[in-house]
């Protein structure tokens, strides 16, 4: 188990900067998700940690040792690929055993370790199967076992569940979480699915355009997104364009207190952070969607901008109704300034 530090790591492909210089520390046993849209550099960053890409500059420190230019086979890292990358000419046992055999371990020991690893991922009894005979979920479990059997210091997972269906993804991510807890292995998990990141991670690193936008626990990231990008990317957020003036922000007909410099600003409110109140802004309901635990209303604000509001399911709301709403919790973003958050 290990500490991982990135110090000023960057990657350029030709003249294109895939990852701008960034630094990050991950403590022993932590599960960190790299979250971002495609092209945000998260996979490149992971591949640099795994040794599949060499950083243009900077250091990759594992337990204080710089491995930035060490080949993958000499790094204490193990990677689970999106396409699982099982060797189709070997059976399950051989796939998992391959790395151990390269280390010239005695056969009995190899057998024991492989069986333990397969049991860990719930695949005992499958060792003679060919990867082609397995389902997508089983193939991904073999790939995980293949990594774990080598007892790596750091486990890297590159969108491992992207090709699986939603149901299977949820089950596998719970299993991964349990295995990771049990082994206490430092893990980096790349995903573009925020639900996956929120459910799995100890900490989330939100990335955009090759740079880190925010690092924090799922709660912090969800409750206090530090940039408009994070606010818009994680969960649903009404991003209302407006003007800040004299300690207040006006946007879409709302006027709320905000201790921020004058100028253009964005008022960010989560759908569940609106309250129905007599003194609120009158908005017209355009559409109502029943999401089970609550109703989701799409309404039209004062200046015509769309506002999404969660409403208690016991309340009867129809298309065309007028609701009076006010933001109870909100944030205001302004370029070049720290965001303002309501109490």
């Amino acid at each position: 188990m290990a500490r991982l530090s990135l110090a000023g790591v960057s990657k350029e492909f030709g003249s294109v900067a895939a990852v701008s210089p960034l630094s990050l520390d991950i403590t022993d046993g932590e599960l960190v998700c790299l979250l971002g849209p495609s092209g945000s550099g998260k996979s490149t960053l992971l591949r640099m940690i795994g040794g599949f890409e060499m950083p243009t500059a900077g250091q990759v420190l594992i337990d204080g040792q710089d491995v930035a230019h060490v080949r993958p086979n000499r790094r204490p890292t193990a990677m689970v690929f999106q396409s699982h990358a099982l060797w189709t000419h070997m059976n399950v046992f051989e796939n998992v055993a391959f790395g151990l055999k390269l280390r010239k371990l005695p056969a009995a020991q190899v057998h024991e370790k492989v069986m333990t690893a397969l049991e860990l991922v719930g695949l005992n009894g499958y060792e003679k199967r060919s990867p082609r005979q397995l389902s997508g979920g089983q193939q991904q479990r073999v790939a995980i076992a293949r990594c774990l059997v080598l007892e790596p210091k750091i486990l890297l997972m590159d969108e491992p569940f992207a090709s699986l269906d939603q149901h299977l993804r949820e089950r596998l991510r719970e299993e991964v979480r349990q295995i990771q807890r049990k082994l206490g292995i430092t893990t980096l998990f790349v995903t573009h699915a925020q639900d996956e990141a929120l459910a799995l991670a100890d900490r989330i690193v939100v990335m955009s355009m090759g740079a880190i936008e925010q690092v924090g626990t799922p709660d912090e990231i969800y409750a206090n997104p530090s940039t408009p990008f994070v606010a818009g990317f994680i969960g649903t957020m009404n991003m209302l364009k407006g003007i800040a003036q004299a300690g207040h922000v006006s946007a879409a007909g709302f006027r709320v207190k905000a201790d921020i410099a004058d100028g253009e600003a964005t008022l960010a409110v989560r759908p569940e952070d609106f309250v129905l109140t007599d003194g609120g802004l009158a908005v017209k309901v355009r559409r109502v969607v029943n999401l089970g635990p609550y109703l989701l209303a799409e309404a039209e604000g004062g200046d015509g901008s769309a506002i999404t509001v969660h409403i208690d399911k016991n309340r009867v709301v129809r298309e065309g109704d007028i609701l009076a709403i006010a933001p109870q919790r909100y944030a205001v973003y302004r370029e070049g300034a720290a965001p303002y958050r309501s109490a």
């Binding site: 990135l6 110090a7 000023g8 790591v9 960057s10 210089p21 960034l22 630094s23 990050l24 520390d25 403590t27 060499m54 950083p55 243009t56 500059a57 900077g58 250091q59 710089d66 930035a68 230019h69 900490r203 690193v205 740079a211 880190i212 690092v215």
Partner: peptide
């Protein structure tokens, strides 16, 4: 759990072997 966005304090490591 320090996370910093500025990494320019680190000296760039040796050139990547082409």
């Amino acid at each position: 759990m320090a996370d910093t966005l500025q990494g320019s304090t680190v000296t760039p490591s040796k050139a990547v072997p082409k």
